[in-house]
Amino acid sequence: PQAPVSASAPGTLPPDDEDAPRFIKRELPRPRGRFTRVEAQRLSFFELTRAEGKATLEEAIEATEHRYSLLRTLEHRYNGPRGELTQVDMENALRQHGIMEVLEERERNNLLTAYAAQRGATGRVGWALGLSPSELQRLTHALHLSGEVENLRERFRSEVLTNSHLTHRLDLLGRDKYLADLGIQKKFTDSLRKELERLVKDSMSDATDLHSLANAVGRKHGAPAELVTRAFERLGLAESLRKQLSSQTLPPSP
């Protein structure tokens, strides 16, 4: 099946907070309906296996995003058959009522939608769905979506590496976590460095210092001068460019 289309505009990246840890589980919305209140006394697991339990489980599925959040919701209200309610206990009850497929379809849609919205960034997908890295990996495998997820990620890798818009490429240079998540950080920075080295050759004669060089490159190629300057610094070009500019402005020796 085709991956859901992201609601975000093409080329729009999710926020990349450099100060935040890469893998933090987002706190999901509180359960709705009958699951909004935690009972002091947990109910028997067998309440879920009775015919009336099907409606309870269907309502719980609608209030959650995946099996891990579903378990966290149910374990507050129900015991398992041998103590704490486990993932296996819950999934057995879902299969008994013939609604495991309902949960799986919801999970597939949520997972692929999140990968599209986060433009292939696995870390951001985990955060958006409230999943740890291991939970996300297990869920992807359980839903047989590993190949489809990798195809999505490859699509976004290709978009990043083939995009010819200079401003967009300069902005991406500040998205270290995103580029690292896709596994293309070095490839991208090497490519952008070569591109800037080529562009500055055409603007050297119009510049006297690094600031005026960034302005000249920005004017010719429709990019903000501050992003060009930042790229010079981050890509290790600034010092050599300063030397070149200094040598061309020195008066000739007598």
Score class of each variant (00 low, 15 high):
123 G>S: 11
10 P>H: 02
135 E>G: 02
38 V>Q: 13
122 T>I: 07
59 E>S: 03
46 F>L: 07
53 G>N: 13
6 S>R: 02
137 Q>A: 14
26 R>F: 13
93 A>K: 07
78 Y>F: 05
61 I>H: 03
122 T>K: 05
11 G>N: 01
44 S>V: 12
107 E>A: 09
56 T>R: 12
7 A>I: 04
12 T>F: 14
123 G>W: 02
104 E>N: 14
21 P>E: 01
27 E>Y: 10
147 G>P: 04
130 G>N: 06
143 L>Q: 06
126 G>A: 15
94 L>Y: 12
58 E>W: 00
6 S>Q: 03
140 T>Y: 02
25 K>E: 01
69 S>M: 06
121 A>E: 11
102 V>S: 14
92 N>S: 10
35 F>L: 01
89 D>L: 05
132 S>K: 09
114 A>T: 10
99 I>A: 11
140 T>A: 03
54 K>M: 14
96 Q>I: 11
33 G>K: 09
50 R>H: 07
59 E>L: 02
31 P>C: 07
119 R>G: 01
37 R>N: 09
55 A>R: 03
4 P>K: 02
51 A>C: 08
19 D>K: 05
127 W>K: 12
75 E>Y: 04
83 G>A: 06
85 L>E: 11
26 R>A: 07
110 N>P: 02
38 V>T: 12
39 E>G: 11
72 R>Q: 15
74 L>D: 01
55 A>S: 08
128 A>R: 13
13 L>E: 06
116 A>M: 13
107 E>W: 00
27 E>N: 15
115 Y>E: 13
95 R>T: 14
136 L>S: 09
104 E>F: 04
31 P>L: 02
127 W>N: 10
31 P>H: 05
